[in-house]
Write a protein that binds this DNA or RNA. Structure first.
Lengths: 185, 185
DNA sequence: CACGTTATATGCTTTTTTGATATATAGCGG
DNA sequence: CCGCTATATATCAAAAAAGCATATAACGTG
């Protein structure tokens, strides 16, 4: 799936600026499974506008920089529908952490512990973050698919957490016993 | 982390060609958490060779196209170690499926069922695949970090599977009840 | 035998990421 | 109050990576 589909999907929930889309894909309910940079979003939006899949309106705010608010069109919704009907790519995970774990022998034991603990913390804060989202989203309209995706993310995060805490020592044992570098870091 | 580090990491396990690296990152024990295309790997290897982090040797095989076998150097190992010591980027997940789930209302119910079942099957075959890898790897030397990563992947896959089977109906209920398109697909 | 698959590598085009730049406003530490 | 940083907003260029086509050669299979 390309950025265009992502933009259409987000716009199908309501009008947004490029900035909003970026934010949703980095923090909001989308953040668990997408990632998009400005450099991808803005060109995608322009292209979508050229194809009349979205419309733009300039909103001048006194003082502030003007914002371009995008709305999905009927044609856009049809295109979104079409995309969602195509075969879906399998999920992909990119994890520097697992690569590091595989190379545990090259990492000092204390450093490895830091890596793991950092990971655990990250998951904790993501869980919190999503709980906040769930509350917000569900207090009002309670959009069930959003709720479903948030629950999905929660389940995954809990499983990861469980694995990491249970198997912490096991990977630490593979790391390099610290030698002369005790003071070095 | 960039492709270069991935190449160094893989080469730290033994010599390999660009083709091998690609394969490992698509099928082998690395496939759960990395992804690399030829267009990224080959240039990365050339660059690494320029910097003497790896060496190349041409292996002419009679008839077959020559292969370039890469080996990591001491300098390369140091660089790998350095990379692994840097702060690790958080894990990223890209899932077209979850985006589709979020847009369930735009998808016909039967189609959605297909999407889910396909996902479930995929996970099953990944689990099988990894079990094979685990057996192979562990019969011989039993490289514990590899085992750890495989177990990690297994735990995640099981959790995902559990969620999907348990919450299948819940998302199906959000999908669009099929209308006049019963025959259309 | 024609064709598909595996092994192997290169080059080109398109997408995406990354990072710099620009502007305006609000809040905070000193 | 001043300068700094953060937030909101958008653009552009450069570097990285993905994706795809192409080439060669062996091996299998219908």
């Amino acid at each position: 799936m390309n950025i265009s589909t992502l933009c259409l999907a987000i716009l199908s929930f309501g009008d947004a600026t490029g900035y909003d889309i970026r934010k949703l894909s980095m923090e909001g309910s989308f953040s668990y499974f997408v990632d998009a940079s400005y450099g991808a979003i803005y060109p995608a939006l322009s292209k979508l506008a050229d194809e009349s899949l979205v419309t733009v309106r300039d909103e001048m705010q006194p003082g502030k920089p003007a914002r371009k608010v995008y709305s999905i069109t009927d044609k856009g919704r049809q295109e979104l529908e079409r995309s969602l009907n195509e075969p879906l790519q399998p999920d992909r995970i990119k994890s520097e952490f697992l690569l590091a774990a595989l190379c545990a022998e090259y990492i000092d034991r204390d450093r490895m512990a830091e890596h793991i603990d950092q990971r655990i913390e990250q998951i904790h804060s993501q869980i919190d973050e999503f709980e906040t989202i769930a509350e917000q989203d569900c207090s009002g309209e309670r959009h069930e698919p959003t709720r479903w995706a948030v629950d999905f993310a929660h389940a995954m995060n809990e499983a990861k957490l469980a694995f990491l805490t249970t198997n912490r020592d096991r990977i630490l044992a593979c790391a390099r016993p610290r030698r002369s570098r005790e003071a070095a870091e």
